[in-house]
Structures are given as C-alpha cells and as structure tokens.
Design a protein around this nucleic acid. Sequence first.
DNA 1: TTGCCGATTACCT
DNA 2: GGTAATCGGCAAC
Length: 209
Amino acid sequence: MTQVMKNKWAKLKRDFFMQPTEEVARQLLGKVLIYKVNSNTVLAGLIVETEAYLGLRDPACHSYGGRKTKRNATLYMMGGHSYIYFVYGMHYCFNIVTRSESEPEAVLVRALEPLQGIETMKVNRGNTKLTSLTNGPAKLCQALKLTTAFDKIDLVHNKSILFIAESHRRPSTIERGPRIGIDYAGKATSWPLRFFYSDNPFVSKGKST
DNA sequence: TTGCCGATTACCT
DNA sequence: GGTAATCGGCAAC
C-alpha cells in the first residue's frame, strides 16, 4: 500500500468559525495562518494578536446597524471566509468572518509570529528586521501578499491554499484590552475585544486610547 | 521614546 | 468633501 503523505497542517473546520466571535478571536491565538503560494513556497505564521468585531451592535464594525455595501458584503457570508479590505488608501487588513450569514461579524488578525517562508516575507516587506515583519494588520498582509484578490476565500475548503491550522505550541498568557484605531466608535472604543499574547515580541505596537 | 503628520484611494454622506 | 480596523519617517523632548 502506498504511503500517503500526511499534511503537516491540520486545517480548522467550519464549526470553529461559527462560534461566538469573541470566542473565535481568543481561540485563534496560537493557531497558524498558512498560505501555500506554490509547490515550493509556503508562508506560515502563528497568530499572536486578534480583534473581535461584533456586527450589528458594534459601532466599530463595518456592518454596524445592518450596513451592507460592496466593500463589506463579505461579512454577510458564512463563518470561515476571508474578509480582506483596502484601507487608508494603501493598506490591506485580513479578517476571518464568523457566525452565520445573518450575523455579519469577524475577527481581525493583527499580528503573526513568522514560522515558515521568512525569507519570502522579507522580500515582500523590503525589510530585514524580523520583529517588524508581521507585527501589524497591514504588515502581515504585505508579508504574505494578501490583497483583495483573496477576499471571500473559503478558508475551510479542502483545496483552499489559504487557511488556518492547529499548532502544538504551548499556550502563552492571553491578555485583552481595547481595540486599536477605532476612536470614532464612541462607547465601543473601550470594549476589551483585542486579544494578544502578553509576552510575545511580534504583537503590534498600536496604541489603544 | 513619544507624538505628529503625510501618503493615497475607495467608499460613504 | 471627509475619512479610514495603518505605517514609517522625522522632530522634539
């Protein structure tokens, strides 16, 4: 009998992303974001910082109050899809849609600890300093070359080259606090929906007012 | 080390 | 016409 090559990465399934969004945000810490560029190149990073965006009732969320536009339509897809948008005229942010189609919520992936394909990431970033490679939402998109071309990707599909996987990393201390860069969101500005590993050097330097 | 500011454009009012 | 789920550079302390 032929030996079947076992996949190194165990892809997360739909159920994981259908959970309450805060739960998904917390549990994504320690998981791995993987992009199989081609047969030679795999880019992978440990998720070390996330933010939950709670849909209709969250003034900081793009779908607040039921807003639905061409840009945020992805939020109304089933949990497990990628939501990548263009912001500040030059940057991209990578999110993962959570919950059902009637609950337009998502988790923003804010920082990764590079695991694999580091040389390629350095080329993509034009930067040689390891700790600046993926310590911010737009930085990690640049490192992995994630653009709106990867918006609406089903991350749990069998054949998907972009997905989230389990890791066997020993758990670290999880801290939580206000989200970054949402000063316009009124009372929600202080909601503690940002999750991160307190002792990880790849967490972003963003300030949460 | 902190803090301000410009870049640059799609999207919303 | 204003602003954004950001980043990097540069000035001031």
